[in-house]
Amino acid sequence: MTEVSDWRFRRYRYRLIGSRCRECGETSYPPRRRCARCGGATEEYQLPRRGRVVHYTLLKALPTRYNRYRPYYLAVVELSDGTRVIGMLTDVDEPSEGMEVEATLRKLYTYGEDGKIIYGVKFRPVL
């Protein structure tokens, strides 16, 4: 991804905007243009910020851009409307299954020391 595609995806990165099918109501994150279940057209949909950790793993095999966070917890989070998403956990020493979390805007990576800082959604324990 270049800085341009980072910019293009900014809404979905910053605000946990997913999609909802106009036909069957199926929700997805990241957003889809056509529903995977019924093929219907979708619309943008603001996902709820709160949810709970369903599964998590301490990831040591991580990509270059995230080396500074090595290791980090990657989790399946079920949001309060039932949508399941994958995301990084932050501000947590030891997560647990069922732990209440909320989406928060955090630094993801930077383009070099003086370069642009890319922010995105991570999940932290509910304060």
Binding site: P30, Y56, T57, A61, L62, G87, M88, V121
Partner: peptide, 26 residues
């Protein structure tokens, strides 16, 4: 790890911190 993960949805790989191995672990 980044290279082999790029067959997955690049939004998830780049912005959600997913790698192929992390996905298998979950």
């Amino acid at each position: 790890y980044r290279g082999v993960s790029l067959v997955e949805d690049s939004f998830l790989v780049n912005y959600s911190g997913l790698t192929e191995i992390g996905l298998h672990a979950l």
